[in-house]
Amino acid sequence: MCRWLAYSGTPILLDNILYKPAHSLIDQSLHSKMGVETTNGDGFGVGWYAPAKDSPAVVRDIGPAWSDRNLQEIAGHVVSSLFFAHIRASTGTAVQQTNCHPFRHGRWMWMHNGAIAEFHRLRRDLALAVDPALFPHVEGSTDSEMMFYLALTLGLEEDPPGAVARMAGLVERTGREHGVEFPLQMTVAVTDGVRLWAFRYSSQKETRSLFYSSRVDTLRSLHPDVAFLREIAEGTRLIVSEPLGNLPGAWNAVPESTYGVVQPEGDEMHTFAPA
């Protein structure tokens, strides 16, 4: 499978999150502790929003993240208040740039850890469900990108939680029509550059790990000596496939079949079920 992180909050150098933590995403590309695979070396991607831009920048490549000098150069010079980062372990589709996350359409970004079971059998039916106007934008061959364009087809831009629920329901119905008992495994992050949604769900109710960071004021009271916590705003949040370190009180598991939203008017968490 894969590992990913999503950051929203005080503008920060990507390097501070991608490289500096003890168990950073770069460390996880070689030494994942909670993933299906220890090594996630089938490509990587980062996407970020910059002021006065209508769509995010996305950089993706097929090499391993741990040895990519361009990624390190970007991380040391790009500042953003909202960014995604993903390291890939292929579940069967080709190792190619168009299959690396995050995926982008207009102002939206999407990334995924998990799989559609027996995707090669379901792929044709799912592809036919994508809006014909959107289908030319599908560049790769992954189940993850297909899920993104199905969610866009089903109303992502107007109602992200509802669209992801409808996408999950469609995948499960299609899978079961093909005799697949547990069609869907997913942790998903999606953003429009202002709000950030994260979903944890699987048909088997044994979903891959997902965590969110505690409130900054709580962490400051627990760790008044940590300088980094004094430099970031109250609304800063990280959502990660696995914790970036072992700071006590910093990480909370996202409950099974749940989604959350990080937004200016306050974070929320809700139960998630396919529609």
Rank of each mutant, 00 (worst) to 15 (best):
P64D: 02
P64F: 02
A65P: 12
A65S: 07
A65E: 00
A65W: 00
A65H: 00
W66E: 03
D68G: 00
R69C: 00
R69I: 12
N70W: 03
N70E: 06
N70M: 10
N70V: 06
N70I: 01
L71E: 02
L71P: 12
Q72E: 15
Q72S: 15
Q72A: 15
E73V: 04
I74M: 12
I74N: 04
I74L: 15
I74A: 05
G76R: 15
H77P: 01
H77L: 03
H77A: 12
V78W: 00
V79R: 14
V79L: 11
V79S: 13
V79D: 07
S80M: 07
S81M: 04
S81W: 06
L82Y: 06
F83Q: 11
F83C: 14
F83E: 14
F83H: 13
A85R: 08
A85T: 12
A85N: 09
H86L: 11
H86G: 13
I87Y: 04
I87P: 05
R88H: 12
T91R: 01
T91A: 09
G92Q: 10
T93N: 14
T93Q: 10
T93F: 05
V95H: 01
V95D: 09
V95N: 13
V95K: 08
V95L: 09
Q96C: 07
Q97P: 03
Q97T: 15
T98H: 09
N99W: 01
C100Q: 14
C100G: 04
H101R: 08
P102R: 00
P102K: 07
P102H: 11
R104W: 01
R104C: 08
H105N: 05
H105F: 13
H105Q: 12
G106D: 06
G106M: 00
G106Q: 04
R107H: 13
W108N: 09
